[in-house]
C-alpha cells in the first residue's frame, strides 16, 4: 500500500441516538454526528477539534464501530465496514485502537499492567505466552515505561496519571494497529505532563506510520501533534485545513471565535474583553435550520438561516462549510 492511498474513507456518516421511544409519538433523536465526510491517508495524523457536545467523540467512536452508524458509510482500505456484525469485525478491531480520555478509568484496576497489555493479544490469539511477553516488553519500551520489570507487575493504582496514559497508549499499540483514535488523551493530565504525552504520541505515530485521529477540545495542543485540523461544530465538520493556515487565517466564523477565545499567558489579557460570540452550541435534537452556527454568527446572512452550506474549497486543500466562501 503506497503512502498516498486512502486508509479510511468516511462518507456522509450519521450517528443519531434515540432519545425517547414514544408509543404513539415519533421518536426523538440526538443528531450527534450528522453527515460527516472525510478521507484519511495511511500514516496521516489529524486533529479533530470541537467543544463538548459537538459530536467529535461520537464520530471517533462510530468510526471504530463502537457505535452502530445510523447512516452513511465507513470504508477502510476500500472495504465497507459500516454494518458488519461484531464477529465479522475482529480483523477491524485488530487494525484499529482507541485511547480513552480518562487514564484512571480506562484500565481495569484489578489487572496488572502486564495483563492489561496482554489482553488484546490473548483475545486475538497472538502467539504463545513467550511471544506475547516479548510484545508486551516491546510496547512498554516504546512508551518508555522502563525499567519494564518494575512496571509490568504493577497495578494501575500504583502509577501516576501520566504513567497510566502511557499504559493506555501501549495497549493501543500491542496489536500494531493502522488506525488509532485518541479521545482527549491528555485533557485529564496535569499541564506539565501533557506535552510529554503528546510528544510521545506524535513520535509513535510517525515511527509506526499510524493513521491517527486526535480528538480534543483544546486547540493549543493540536499544534504539537498534527499538521491538519478538522473543526467540528454541532455534528458537522465545518472546516478542514492545515494547522498553521487555519490558526492564522480561519475561514469559518466558528473557528475564528474558537481562536479568539483562547488565552495565551499574557498579562495584558486582564485589560481586555474577548470578542467572542455569545450563546452556546445548539441542542442537537432540534439543530438550527441552515447553517448550524448562524444564531451566534457575527457575519450571518439571509441564506445562512435557510440553506445548509455545502463544502467550499476556497483555497487548495482547505475546506469550509460556510456561505461566506461561496464562489461569487
Amino acid at each position: 500500500m503506497s503512502e498516498d492511498e486512502e486508509l479510511l474513507e468516511v462518507e456522509n456518516l450519521r450517528k443519531w441516538f434515540e432519545l425517547r421511544k414514544g408509543l404513539f409519538s415519533s421518536p426523538l433523536y440526538v443528531k450527534a454526528v450528522d453527515g460527516v465526510s472525510f478521507k484519511l491517508k495511511k500514516g496521516e495524523a489529524i486533529s479533530l477539534v470541537g467543544e463538548s457536545g459537538s459530536g467529535k467523540t461520537t464520530l471517533g467512536k462510530t468510526i471504530l464501530r463502537l457505535y452502530e452508524p445510523t447512516g452513511g458509510t465507513i470504508k477502510i482500505k476500500g472495504r465497507d465496514i459500516t454494518h458488519l456484525k461484531s464477529n465479522e469485525l475482529m480483523w477491524y478491531r485488530r487494525e484499529t485502537a482507541l485511547i480513552e480520555q480518562d487514564p484512571y478509568g480506562a484500565l481495569p484496576s484489578f489487572f496488572s499492567i502486564h495483563r492489561i497489555l496482554e489482553e488484546p493479544l490473548i483475545i486475538h490469539k497472538f502467539g504463545n505466552a513467550e511471544e506475547r511477553r516479548k510484545r508486551v516488553r516491546e510496547v512498554l519500551e516504546e512508551v518508555r515505561l522502563t525499567p519494564i520489570e518494575d512496571f509490568a507487575p504493577k497495578y494501575p493504582h500504583m502509577l501516576s496519571g501520566g504513567q497510566l496514559q502511557r499504559v493506555a497508549i501501549a495497549r493501543a499499540l500491542t496489536l500494531r494497529p493502522e488506525l488509532v483514535v485518541a479521545d482527549e488523551p491528555v485533557s485529564m493530565l496535569d499541564a506539565s505532563v501533557r506535552i510529554e504525552i503528546l510528544n510521545l504520541l506524535r513520535e509513535l505515530q510517525e515511527k509506526r506510520k499510524i493513521s491517527f485521529i486526535y480528538i480534543t477540545h483544546d486547540l493549543t495542543t493540536t499544534k504539537y501533534f498534527s499538521e491538519k485540523l478538522f473543526i467540528m461544530y454541532a455534528g458537522k465538520i465545518v472546516e478542514i485545513g492545515d494547522m498553521l493556515k487555519v490558526v492564522h487565517n480561519p475561514l469559518h466564523p466558528y473557528t475564528e471565535a474558537l481562536l479568539k477565545a483562547i488565552p495565551d499567558p499574557d498579562p495584558r489579557n486582564r485589560e481586555i474583553l474577548r470578542d467572542v460570540p455569545p450563546g452556546e452550541p445548539p441542542n442537537l435534537v432540534n439543530p438550527p435550520s441552515g447553517c448550524r452556527f448562524h444564531p451566534r454568527c457575527p457575519y450571518k446572512m439571509d441564506i445562512c438561516q435557510k440553506e445548509e452550506p455545502p463544502v467550499f474549497e476556497p483555497e487548495n486543500g482547505r475546506f469550509v462549510l460556510c456561505w461566506l466562501h461561496a464562489k461569487k
Binding site: 463502537l66 484499529t96 482507541l98
Partner: peptide
Amino acid sequence: YPYIEAAKAYGASSKRIILLYIIPK
C-alpha cells in the same frame, strides 16, 4: 466505564467482558 469501552475496542467478547471485566469490579 472507559475500560469496558476500551475492551470492546480491542475486540473482547461479551462473555469475556462480563466474566473478566465486570464481575471482578
